[in-house]
Design a protein around this nucleic acid. Structure first.
Length: 853
RNA sequence: GCCCAAGUGGCGGAAUGGUAGACGCAGGGGAUUCAAAAUCCCCCGCCGCAAGGCGUGUCGGUUCGAGUCCGACCUUGGGUACCA
């Protein structure tokens, strides 16, 4: 081979790793274990360059840990249930199962050439009956422990298609297929009691030292612990059997500013009124229009209906307030009823302004003006002057006022201080086919009956031949299946019906990390394996999973532990978390007849930062856009590997941006990466036989040890781009060095080792060329010699009033006063001072000298 | 709406409160070559002939010193419980 050829090198070394079973996870030996996991992919059909980046990061960690003497577990699987498979079946016919498994085959085939150090023997898909059957067993155990229950909850309802819609199937408040205005409808659904763990899920965040702070903050806000006052407003006259309306407030100190009591359209009182009064019914129907998302509800126009009922203020029997039904009050949070304080809440202010309700301030700023318009909502720790206080001092913080009011209310027997959480129970029912069936049976005599474990897995019907699963009509095929629904009651044996809801796909991904420790076990996990491999030492995935997936997994780990399916130590399953950014790509756009036309990158020629089509038309370049098929800006890793090889793709996705940030894929960047790898290869292949040179050899050795230190630090701190920058520097140093060939050989062997987690194939090839022993993948990571890292001199910038005016080079441990003298004597300082006397001189050893005038 | 981030040359980005722009791309100049490709070397924030001045989204603050800390705002991205 006379030049670097990825096509020749890469398959060769992949086979060598396979033959030596380098990445088969082993429990044997005295080595410490290390479990690195990237969030597993959805089998969309083809791998994406974002996958390449994500799995390359994990692979760097896996290979590095292997070379530092660990037993590494680095598995791969597929998050294979979900809506896209059903959508594909709707659009193109076929069966979700066939579509999914065919996609998995394609993606595995596309992933293998990337050379990831994965233990493929552990692979599974969540749609494998062996996996989801164990998930059904977990569900039954959770049910037995009281961690699952049924209650009503709202879904998006398409009144034309008569089907439940996912949030993403609601576009501008309308069903994506029918175009009908979506309504909120209640259904009986299954729930996991995640709210039982609210306090623990919140407080345990403190112990997650190796999680990004932003993720912990997001989770903490999501769980949303609040303290407040719960109390009841007495109706002036009983209505529909109600004498009181129970409310919860986090700002009881504003009670004297109340102007109305509001209840949710789903509040029992609202429902009772609705049943009797067509006008209330009409309003509630209107209020239920639109999707179920928090965003849709919060941003919808505030609508209210005056019920005509009134309540008495708890602190003033003569004060009557109206009761309104309002569309922005959620039945799921608190008691489903509030009292409105327009002066100190933006939403209440908007509502009161619209319906002409009184706006009564209860406090004002200690200094400055009361805002001219809108509500005055200072932060709770800020001191304010109360004009209509319930209890406490005239001037106090919001927090002090809340405490004083709660104490007062409790003393007077008006209400109780309570702690509440925003976190709601996890609704897991989905009215869809392609998911894990919920293993229960509905019996007319026995009610809801759990399946017997020996009947698991309850498999989805596949129905080849004359009765295929039909996706051409909306709704859940399981619900209208001619035979699958019918079964015998596990309790009494009489004819009964299966639950036709399947599980949320978040359930599938909430325990797969545990299953990887014993993927073929006939129980959910094998305890001995979990004891050894858990927890995940490093988890890597997208920030889009910061809340739901991670919170659900944390819940599952606790619930599994309660049921004896995970060891005690695994209540927090992910010791360290890293959230990586996306790979983006420019969009090339022109317009035709007022509509955008998107062009493929290969059809665009770039000159001086501008893009042109073949016919000379200039295209608009939109940089750093999320890749999207409809925008024609998707980079196909298969094409990149064909053109440059896996090592180039791996090197590039790590090189240009910090891993937590987005990286833009550019053809020029990929080209540059490829050229660099070829240069490194040539350095090894064309080593030559120059004689030793003591000084130069020593200098190169020092560079080598610095490179070991810097690159290792980068890898350990997820600074892969920093490691790569150092590797460029080290490569330049070797290339320019006048050292002898043997010194260069040693430097190049270290270079190969330091590159091996990122570009493993090239590293193996160099290792072989340079005469390394065995596989570089199994060689021990080099260790930097501290003695080689010590510098004698240091260059200090000299500042005058914080501005750089020169620099001096001094011995590392020169005393401060001598540094001062040298600094004052330097040209830049003399010129800038121009005879003025320095007031103060700041010497930061090894860093800077600042002369203050 | 609410929660969480990010914003630095033409571009991607570097920088424990201490020389802003490491490293790479693009660009310019040169070497090599019959010529080219490939490769190698040098230059490269902005304004200015220069001295020097200005520069890290905007405005203000803390500090001897701020890209970094604090406050407000703007823009972009992620999440918002049935996309995964």
């Amino acid at each position: 081979m006379s030049r670097y050829s990825a096509a020749e090198i890469e398959p060769k070394w992949q086979k060598a790793w396979d033959d030596a079973q380098v990445f088969r996870a082993r429990r044997d030996g005295d080595k410490p274990k290390y479990y690195v996991l990237e969030m597993f992919p959805y089998p969309s059909g083809r791998i994406h360059i974002g996958h390449v980046r994500n799995y390359t990061m994990g692979d760097v960690i896996a290979r590095y840990k292997l070379s530092t003497g660990h037993n590494v577990l680095h598995p791969m699987g597929f998050d294979a249930f979900g809506m896209p498979a059903e959508n594909a079946a709707m659009a193109n016919g076929g069966h979700p199962k066939d579509w999914t498994y065919s996609n998995i085959d394609t993606m595995v085939e596309q992933m293998k050439p990337l050379g990831f150090g994965l233990d493929w023997s552990r692979m599974f898909a969540t749609c494998d009956p062996e996996y989801y059957g164990q998930q059904q067993a977990l569900f039954l155990d959770f049910l037995e422990k009281g961690l699952v229950y049924r209650k009503n909850a709202v879904v998006n309802w398409d009144p034309v298609d008569m089907t439940v819609l996912a949030n993403e199937q609601v576009e501008d408040g309308r069903g994506w297929r029918s175009g009908a205005l979506v309504e909120r409808k209640e259904l009986t659904q299954w729930f996991f009691k995640i709210s039982d763990f609210s306090e623990d899920l919140l407080s345990a965040l403190d112990g997650l030292d190796n999680w990004p702070a932003k993720v912990k903050t997001m989770q903490a806000n999501w769980i949303g612990k609040s303290r407040g006052l719960q109390f009841a407003w007495d109706l002036t006259a009983p209505a529909e059997g109600f004498e009181q309306i129970e409310v919860y407030t986090t700002r009881p100190d504003t009670l004297m500013g109340a102007s109305f009591v509001g209840i949710s359209p789903d509040h029992p009182l609202a429902k009772a009124l609705e049943a009797k009064d067509p006008k209330v019914a009409a309003f509630c129907a209107e209020a239920r229009k639109g999707g179920t998302t928090e965003e849709a509800i919060e941003t919808a126009e505030k609508l209210g209906y005056d019920t005509g009922l009134t309540v008495t203020h708890p602190l003033d029997p003569d004060w009557k307030l109206p009761v309104w039904i309002a569309n922005f009050i959620l039945m799921d949070y608190g008691t489903g009823a509030i009292f409105g304080v327009p002066a100190h809440d933006e939403r209440d202010h908007e509502f009161a302004s619209k319906y002409d309700l009184p706006i009564t301030p209860v406090f004002e700023p200690v200094e400055g003006e009361y805002p001219a318009k809108g509500a005055y909502v200072p932060p709770k720790p800020e001191k304010v002057r109360f004009t209509r206080k319930v209890a406490g001092e005239d001037i106090m913080t919001g927090n002090e006022a809340i405490d004083a009011t709660v104490a007062y209310a409790e003393e007077k027997g008006i209400g109780q201080g309570v702690t509440k959480f925003r976190l709601r129970d996890w609704g897991l029912s989905r009215q869809r086919y392609w998911g894990c069936p919920i293993p229960v049976v509905h019996c007319d005599d026995c009610g809801v009956v759990p399946e017997k474990k020996e009947n698991l897995p309850i498999q989805l019907p596949y129905d080849e031949g004359d009765k295929p699963i039909d996706f051409s009509v909306p709704g859940n095929p399981l619900d209208r299946h001619p035979t699958w629904r019918d079964c015998a009651c596990p309790a009494c044996g009489k004819p009964a019906k299966r639950e036709t809801d399947t599980m949320d796909t978040f359930v599938d991904s909430s325990w797969y990390f545990a299953r990887f420790t014993s993927p073929r076990a006939e129980t959910p996990i094998e305890m001995a394996e979990a004891e050894y491999w858990m927890n995940v030492d490093q988890y890597i995935g997208g920030i889009e999973h910061a809340i739901l997936h991670l919170l659900y997994s944390r819940f599952f780990a606790r619930a599994m532990q309660i049921c004896g399916h995970l060891p005690q130590k695994s209540s927090e399953p992910f010791d360290a978390l890293f959230t990586q950014g996306m790979v983006t790509h420019a969009i090339y756009k022109t317009e035709k007849d007022g509509r955008p036309v998107f062009h493929y990158p290969e059809d665009v020629e770039l000159r001086d930062g501008k893009g042109f089509l073949k016919d000379g038309t200039e295209v608009q370049i939109i940089p750093s856009a999320k890749m999207s098929k409809s925008k024609n800006n998707v980079v196909d890793p298969v094409a990149i590997i064909d053109q440059y090889g896996a090592d180039t793709a791996r090197w590039f996705v790590l090189s240009d941006s910090p891993p937590e940030r987005d990286v833009e894929w550019t053809a020029a960047g990929a080209e540059a990466a490829s050229k660099h790898l070829a240069r490194v290869w040539r350095l090894a292949a064309e080593l030559g036989d120059a004689p030793a040179n003591a000084t130069e050899d020593e200098t190169l050795l020092r560079e080598t040890h610095k490179a070991i230190r810097d690159v290792t630090l980068g890898v350990e701190s997820f600074g892969f781009n920093a490691s790569i920058a150092k590797l460029y520097g080290f490569t330049n140093a070797i290339q320019k060095s006048k050292a002898g060939s043997e010194a260069k050989r040693e430097a190049l062997k270290v270079l190969a080792q330091l590159m091996s987690p990122m570009t493993p194939h090239l590293a193996e090839e160099m290792w072989q060329i340079l005469g390394g022993t065995g596989l570089i993948a199994q060689a021990a990571w080099p260790v930097a010699d501290e003695a080689m890292l010590v510098e004698q001199n240091v260059t200090l910038p000299i500042q005058v009033n914080g501005k750089r005016r020169g620099e001096i080079t001094v011995p590392k441990d020169m005393p401060k006063d001598e540094v001062e003298k040298l600094a004052l004597a330097s040209d830049g300082v003399i010129r800038t001072l121009d005879g003025a006397q320095p007031k103060k001189i700041i010497v930061v050893p090894g860093r800077v000298v600042n002369v203050v005038v």
